[in-house]
Design a protein around this nucleic acid. Structure first.
Lengths: 224, 224
DNA sequence: GCAAAAGATGAACACCTATTCAGGTCGTCT
DNA sequence: AGACGACCTGAATAGGTGTTCATCTTTTGC
């Protein structure tokens, strides 16, 4: 006798898996990674603790997938914003702004994905996540360099530095804590974007223009 | 009968305390914060595990003091380098270079102090540490702004961003791993310093000059 | 409808390291 | 020297959470 999964069952299994991941994401979004514990996540997903282990070999795998998922979304958003820009410099500005906005709109989640201490080893997926995002930024910087808008430089290092600057200043422990006010929030995004653009060699005056352009379509996101 | 500590005993107690802290620092320097465990640290310091608790109420306190100590050293080095510079812009460049060099010369320790996951809560001392260093950088940026060398800006945010950029690009997970070669190491320091100076508004050409100036006295440190 | 297989359950287990504390040693005062 | 207090020791404890597994429930194939 050969047992075969019914289509319905396949769907239910997939749904459960998603539910568990979603539960983990919710937990992370509102309590940081520390809140991503097997038992509470299981409760949120309406399953038993043991069930989690039928879908993820270990907590480390669960968190790794969570990181990968968030990272994928982030990357897609960056590409979308950058591709919609009229030129390489605008694209870079848009990419930077997108990172800033996303990070700010989900601070706890971002902090958890990026740097919050976790009891299991998730360095590999964090590394992959950073590599993806930094890689995209590097590509945009490179495009601007090739277009002659920026001086030649080590784009990989520059991209990494930009990410560090964005993260530390917006969700790091020294990040201003009064960013609930949308106006301040937008200011922060603009300030940091300006810093980032100048860092890679955009002249001050031009950078200011790019920042304003890039922030305009992102305003809606900030509100969200 | 009133028991009084002999001078000799006072000295021995102080020495033990230092020994424990030093042991913790060594452990962190060669295995990261994860290696700072009570038992191994006690062994390194030639005392019993229980003795550690006669000097530090808890592991969190031990690590907090470790962070504070390293941070103090770092701050002193930054001030020394900056004060020795001929002008505000040079001072800023020197400060940034110093941070970069220090961080690179003790990567594991720096990573541990800054961001490595720890099982106890050390957010307070990490925060204090960042505040001190960022504050110093902010002061240097401010001086350059007042001297008319830089555009007006949110110096606190800028300082934070610079720190983030330095840390992420030099000791973060994406940091190049081939920095054992002194030449590459110097290149990395220069590249990042250049980025940082441009970020706060130093013009490209001038920034390049400042970087070279600032790196010259720091060469010796890089070798160390 | 029924047997066999897959899936789900959740209480019990395992593990790891910070922390404690009863007992021993050393230093201080008379 | 003797007695008392301070200090040190390190094996035992504690506590919290990821993981397992015997048992129950649901689904499949005939």
């Amino acid at each position: 006798m050969v047992y075969r999964r019914t289509h319905q069952v396949v769907k239910r299994l997939a749904a459960r898996r998603s539910a568990i991941l979603a539960a983990a994401r919710e937990a992370a979004a509102d309590g940081g990674m520390a809140a991503v514990q097997i038992a509470p996540v299981a409760v949120r997903a309406h399953v038993a603790a043991g069930t989690v282990y039928r879908y993820f070999p270990s907590k480390a795998d669960l968190i790794s997938e969570l990181i990968a998922e968030v990272s994928r979304d982030e990357l897609a958003a960056i590409r979308r914003a950058a591709d919609a820009a009229p030129g390489p410099s605008s694209a870079l500005a848009a990419a930077v702004t997108t990172v800033a906005v996303h990070v700010l709109s989900q601070r706890k989640l971002a902090w958890g994905i990026l740097a919050e201490p976790v009891d299991v080893d998730v360095t590999a997926s964090r590394l992959a996540s950073r590599r993806e995002i930094a890689g995209e930024l590097a590509a945009r910087i490179d495009a601007a360099v090739r277009a002659g808008h920026l001086p030649a430089q080590d784009t990989a290092l520059a991209a990494t530095a930009l990410l560090g600057a964005l993260h530390e200043s917006l969700v790091g422990p020294l990040a201003p804590d009064n960013l609930d006010d949308p106006a301040k929030l937008r200011d922060a995004v603009q300030t940091v974007t300006l810093l980032a653009l100048r860092a890679v060699g955009v002249m001050d005056a031009r950078a200011r223009g790019l920042v304003v352009q890039a922030t305009t379509p992102a305003k809606a996101l900030v509100g969200a």
